[in-house]
Amino acid sequence: MTSESKVKIALAVNGEPTEIAFAPHKTLLEVLREDLGLTGTKHGCELGECGTCTVLLDGTPVLSCLVLGLACAGRTVRTVEGMAQGGKLHPLQDTFADLGAAQCGYCTPAFLLAAEALLAANPKPTREEIKDALAGNLCRCTGYIKIYEAVELAAARMRGEKAEPTTESLYGR
């Protein structure tokens, strides 16, 4: 029962080649959190019903709770730990922090990665496109609004525009 023999795979996690051994029934979520110590990826149901465990698999946002670790051999995985580079936050992380798009912070890694994938495919999304792209991620704290604003602001900055948060967003009307 407790001595199921481990399997070993090679994959790239946040740009680094990684070899890891784990029990073969484990999901990517469990491998990341328990075998690689990357606890930035969270979970809210383990059944694909909340989006909290979102990671990028070969650049595509997926639910790590429903991906087998074994199915990731030879693939690339990006987690929230890979977003900040050289001690500097990713533009999305910056705007999420500045606007309060992260309250409890539990769903935040998932939203950041889903948003990053959106902006990679669509650098100038409309509010509706942002809502559609993030419709698979639940957040109970923010009501999503600060998240939309953070994605819009980061998108503008990533396009090279000099953008600042609106007064209404920070101070109300």
Partner: peptide, 12 residues
């Protein structure tokens, strides 16, 4: 955490 049971996984 809800986990998968043990099983054999094959990739044809």
């Amino acid at each position: 955490m809800l986990r998968l049971p043990f099983f054999t996984y094959l990739e044809p």
